[in-house]
């Protein structure tokens, strides 16, 4: 029974992680910016669903929540691009400076959310700092109609996950837009010379990144019994880990890594909590252990910078002299 629960958990978490990791890899390989404001998209996506739920008196349809979250996340992404990333790029700032600036942005958004929560709390009298799970009415309706008894989050995550992944696949592989995005990922200067409008494409990438990542937030609120403004931090650690395993370039490997990490996290945690009685907060450490091992054994040098430095050194073995 416990095993079954852990497997269901892994399944739902897989979708949450896939939906938030793929955009991270996508944004890095297209824009070459290591975005530390990534958790913002997740948190804001989740809270848009929560606020909707509160103002629609707990009658939120999934597609409305998805629409609003996607737009909010996308707009935040574009805003970041226009206010932070583009000016820094024009100034010719180093990748590290981009990274630090996005970290600054993360905290601005994070605490802005706390303020929004508090203001709404005063207005509505409900606590937003730890919110119970949100049920989507349209999905429940369909489930009742066709007599599907599985927990709602399985249906939601499967539907939303498949729709997003398929549309992204079509967008990237079958449209001109996708070719342009891949072109700019391979060689920015060459792509610009070929007449690809860099600015617009970057803004669009950030819109997509923010939007898709925000969708993982609405899955989270559907599944988790308690959503706090800190969820982004938890998810993003796994996103970075998955993107890292995918070498910051392969979307497929990133997706597989997300699923594998979700499974490891839940199964190993089940084992640890059974034998040692540890709390859920330790789950992060499990993921990190996996990443650290990979880091030592097979680091993704090249993508995201890196040194041609090998640990196994054999200082000049002597060869027979002439």
């Amino acid at each position: 029974m416990e095993i079954a629960r852990a497997l269901i958990c892994s399944y739902v978490f897989s979708w949450i992680y896939i939906l938030s990791s793929i955009p991270l890899t996508l944004s890095y390989r297209t824009t070459k910016v290591f975005n530390f404001a990534h958790p913002v998209f997740i948190t804001y996506g989740a809270y848009v669903a929560i606020f909707l739920n509160e103002f629609l008196n707990k009658n939120t349809p999934l597609f409305i929540a998805a629409l609003f979250s996607f737009t909010t996340g996308g707009l935040i992404g574009v805003l970041n691009y226009l206010l932070i990333i583009r000016p820094l790029h024009q100034r010719g700032a180093s990748p590290n400076v981009h990274m630090i600036a996005t970290m600054g942005a993360w905290f601005v958004y994070q605490y802005a959310l706390y303020i929004i929560c508090q203001v709404l709390m005063k207005l509505r009298g409900a606590s937003f700092l730890s919110y119970p799970s949100v049920e989507y009415v349209d999905i429940s309706y369909i489930q009742r109609a066709i007599g599907l008894n599985t927990p709602q989050y399985i249906v939601t995550s499967t539907t939303l996950g498949l729709v997003v992944i398929l549309s992204l696949y079509v967008l990237l592989n079958k449209t001109m837009l996708g070719f342009a995005m891949r072109g700019i990922a391979d060689n920015q200067i060459l792509a610009t010379l070929c007449g690809i409008p860099r600015d617009k494409l970057m803004a669009l990438t950030w819109f997509l990144t923010g939007g898709i990542t925000a969708l993982s937030g609405i899955l989270w609120v559907n599944f988790s019994g308690s959503t706090t403004p800190e969820i982004g931090l938890h998810v993003v650690v796994i996103n970075f880990a998955a993107a890292f395993i995918g070498g910051l370039s392969s979307l497929l490997v990133t997706a597989l890594a997300s699923a594998a990490l979700a499974l490891t996290e839940n199964i190993v945690f089940l084992f640890l909590s059974y034998h040692l009685g540890l709390q859920p907060t330790i789950r992060l450490a499990i993921v990190f252990g996996v990443v650290f091992t990979i880091l030592v054994i097979r680091p993704p040098l090249g993508a995201g910078g890196g040194l041609p430095y090998r640990f196994r050194t054999r200082i000049g073995r002597k060869v027979a002299g002439p």
Partner: peptide, 20 residues
């Protein structure tokens, strides 16, 4: 890749790190 050190002995430097 073999390299002759100061003492006249050839050593194998294949795959050493750049700083080495």
């Amino acid at each position: 890749i073999l390299y002759k050190t100061l003492s006249g002995i050839f050593v194998d430097i294949t795959g050493l790190n750049p700083h080495e």
